[in-house]
Every structure is written in structure tokens, then in C-alpha cells.
Design a protein around this nucleic acid. Sequence first.
DNA 1: CGAGAGGTTGAATAAAGTCAACAAACGTGG
DNA 2: CCACGTTTGTTGACTTTATTCAACCTCTCG
Lengths: 288, 288
Amino acid sequence: MLSTQTSEIRSVPSTTPSPSMEAGRQRQGRLWSNLKEVCDLLHIPVAGSVNTDELLFQHVQFKTGQRIHTIGQPFDTLYIVNSGFLKTVLIDEFGNEQVLSFPMKGDMLGVDGIHTKHYSSEAVALSDCDLILLPFKKLTALGRIHLELENVMYGVMSRELVREQAMIGMLGALSAEARVARFLVALAERFAQMGYSSKLFNLRMTRHEIGSYLGLTLETVSRTLSAFNEIGLISVDQRTIGIKDADALKTLRRLPPSRSRAKQLAASKSKSSSEPHPAALPQLLAAI
Amino acid sequence: MLSTQTSEIRSVPSTTPSPSMEAGRQRQGRLWSNLKEVCDLLHIPVAGSVNTDELLFQHVQFKTGQRIHTIGQPFDTLYIVNSGFLKTVLIDEFGNEQVLSFPMKGDMLGVDGIHTKHYSSEAVALSDCDLILLPFKKLTALGRIHLELENVMYGVMSRELVREQAMIGMLGALSAEARVARFLVALAERFAQMGYSSKLFNLRMTRHEIGSYLGLTLETVSRTLSAFNEIGLISVDQRTIGIKDADALKTLRRLPPSRSRAKQLAASKSKSSSEPHPAALPQLLAAI
DNA sequence: CGAGAGGTTGAATAAAGTCAACAAACGTGG
DNA sequence: CCACGTTTGTTGACTTTATTCAACCTCTCG
């Protein structure tokens, strides 16, 4: 794990990332975007027409495994994912990673750095990525001219906050099965939103990373995926996931406290002895 | 629980909250604050000198149990806690509460409403509270005159985001004991910051609410507090908590084997050595 | 004073983690 | 191209952790 870190060369965003870069805009494999395009990418409705082809934001490419920013590094720029997949992580006092998010197209990175002027998390490319740089100083200066920009920023940050709240709710309240199920559904919807198939896709992250994200061990993630496969909710082959029953996945939840438990007990009592499926999954679907 | 809800009258912030309210500012039991005072309260360094005694923000009082805003309610104002204690919660499809935070003096409420223009969480007063209203429209309009205001807002939102990231890390990675320990430490530090004792304080929330916040059951919270009390890390008497060993709480990872378990082990081994100390505390602190 | 909410504790149970063995895929250099 | 070591994923047996259910206690507060 450390070897990959040391083999990596820290990317310096202000340096030209590719040798053959031209100044100005380029249609294919584009290197610059204007404000309108950035807002579209973020799915944030931009109020006034901002015909700002003069105001361009540079793109930078990162290769799989490269770090976009590290914890404690001085904050100066925000990033928007134009293509590719990443993870953001916290690192605890003993070097253990805690995955916070898996940013992909249209997500913003680096917002956590604004407050203390240092990034509080680390972002790593899980695939080759194309990111748009938003130098924060430039952004705030720009806010003085394009007043609608501040609303864009508030919107993005608020959205991120709501996402994290949902995550807290999930970690605090849901069972392992429900977490994995919702993770898959959220991924599927995300892929759909990006124009890919929501029924068949490839995970870009390891079981370990999924487990860290969901507050589970990699074994629990693996077992849960196998269980979903066995009861026909999904198909699994390594990192290829096929969604077969999205509705069931959406409503799957923790065995609720009182009522379903009573049902379960009543059922097992009335059924008395013979249980045909000793290894059958505890009823995965919501009863309540 | 429902009875308190029904007995409550929805507060309308734009309406005068108390009958004897005077227009303008009032020194004792103040009803208005200027921008500088708001920034000080938020612990956000405000750049330029903003002598804006003309720009005043109204205070509103809420009584214990009252809701500040509810889920789905149209968003129009942010709140800053001037005094008192609150909780914010999500409510799942079956009415179960998930506590997200316990805001207190200097915290901002309502940021989650910006994105969708509707609050996505509910805020409830756990004690009588004094809140400062920041009408969002007014705030953004103000941003056009006082340009440093946007940095204040970015700072507050970023800080909140970092806090939630830390919460995700905690829920994803720590044991029940470690969560409770860190919760107590965080509370103590918060009280210290507000000028109260960090060694002896009163919890403003129930075990159930703490459990919801930490992703645990109320019984686990209760047991953990009792265990900490037994090994001398804290003193507990209902909601009164005394912190006796803050350092141990900060670095705690897991608890020593419980007494019943120790007994069980001793019995099974029965090495003829009579154990005089029932609860030795071997590697209580993090070894690795 | 009594009802009800909040809190503590114990015993049994279920959920998830740990440890371990193995298999499949990947990547690198001969 | 293949052999290899490494990383990733699966599965089983067992252990630990936290939950569930239940009983009981202690405060408030009408």
C-alpha cells in the first residue's frame, strides 16, 4: 500500500499537466470549461445568462491511484469531476482509512478545506480522471461580478451537507444488508444520471473500500452481495453488478424493533419444529 | 411524545414572539444583534471592520420542546444559536428519529434547506433557546454590499461539513465505548468553549437521543456510562456527568472484559488464584 | 399521590466482526 | 507467453459486540 504512495508523483495543478497542451479551448478531450458548463455539470440551475466564454476554468487529468489533495495540505482550489471515479478518505491516528465518499461526474471536491484553509480529507483517483480546477480566490473574486455565483456555491455546499446527513442517518440506523442495498441503488441511480446503464455496471472500488464507506468489514460486504445474488436481487461477478430487483433493494431494511419480531416469534412458535431452511436468510424484506 | 407535539403551536419567526417587544435594540435579554456580533458568535473572523449597527438581526425565543423548523417546510431563514440547546433530527419513513446534531451556542441551523429550498431536517429546542434569525434573502442581498460576508458563510458551511465528516468517521469506525467516550469529550470541550465547566455538566438530552446520535441503543449508552463510572473515568448521576479522566476518554478504544465475563473466564480456568480485584483494567487504552 | 417518562441492569439472542483457508484475477518481469 | 507474487474476493467456523426483551427503579410533574 505504501509502495503505491511512494511511486506517485504529487501533481501540481498550476503546472501544465500535459506537454502538448494548447492555450485556449479545445473541443475533443477539452481542457477548459466556462462557467455555464461548470454549472450544468453540477446540475445547478444558473440564474442569469452568463455568457462568459472569456472566463475559463482549466482541466487537469489524474491517473488511477494519484492523489488530488492530501490531509493538511494548504487549501487553494476546489475541483469538479468531469469524468472518472474517486474516493475521499479520512485517515485516523494509526493510518486506517475511512472512506467518506465516492465522487464522480458532477461532484465537487475540496469544500472541506475552506474553513481551516487546509484540506481535512484526502482525495484519490480510482480511475483515470478529468477534473476541472476552481481556484478559490478566483472564484470569490468572480462572485463580485457574477452575483448569482454565490447561490451556486451555497447550493452545492448545502447539497453536500444533505448528502452527508443522509449518510449519518444510514450509518446510525440501518443494518448491514440495508446499507449495502442502498449503496447499490444509489450507485445505479448515479449511473443512470450519467447516461450509463443502471442495470449493469462495474464497481470502481474494492470490497474493503465499500466496507469502510458503509461502516462494515469487507467480509460482511462480500457475504451480503453473495446473499443478494442468491435470492435473486442482483447478480455478482467480481466487480460486475447486475441489478435485478431495484424495488426490493430500495425497501430492504433492518428487521424493525417490535412488530415484525413478534410476527417472527409467532411464526416460529406455530411452525413448531421442522424448519426446512436452517441457513435461510432472515427475512430481508421489510415486514412493517 | 406525540402529546408534546400536538400541544405545541408552530412558531412563525416573522411574527413578534413576545408581546412586550420593543422596536430597536435592547441591552439585557437583547432582541437584536448586528453583523459583527453574529460573526463573533460564530467564531468566524470577519475581515474588514463592519460597523453596521444599522443592519440588525432579530432574535426569537423558543421554549423547550418547540420546533424551530420541520422537514419539508419551505426554507427561508438560517438560525444562529445565541443560547440554549437543541437537537436536529431526520425522520424516517416510519417516524423513527435519527438525531443528527445537538446545536448549541454559536452553531448555525437550517443550512440543509438552501439546496432544495426546503428544510431536510427538523430542529427542536431541548431547553429554552434564544436564536438569531438570518433571513436568507436578506443575507444574500447583504452579500452584495458586504463582500466579506460570503467568506463568512463559506466558512460556516465548510465547518459544518467537516463536523459531519468526522461524525461519519466515528460512526463507521469506532466501537460503542469509543463513541460514547468521544461524545463526552466533545461535549466537555464545547462547554469549556462556552465558559462553563468542562469537568461537571448536565446532559441536556436523553439516553435515547444520545443513542440515536451515536448509532446505539439507549441501553448500550446507559451501560457504557455505568462502565465508565465503575472504572473511574467519569461520575454519573442521571444527567449530571463529571469528567474524571479526560485523557483516557479521548484515547479509549475498547473496554476491558466485563465483570461477568471475567468471572466466567476465571471460573473456567480456575487457576486456584483467588482474584481480589474484580475489574482490573488491562489494555483499556489504545495499544495500536 | 400516582402516572409516566427516563434510567439502570440482567439474561438471552442476533448481528457483525475476526481469523483462516483458499481461489481467482492482475501485473510484472523473465 | 508464462510463471510468480500480490491483490482482491469468497466462504466457513467461531467469537465478540451490541441489541432485544424484560423487570425494576427513580425522578418529575400534574
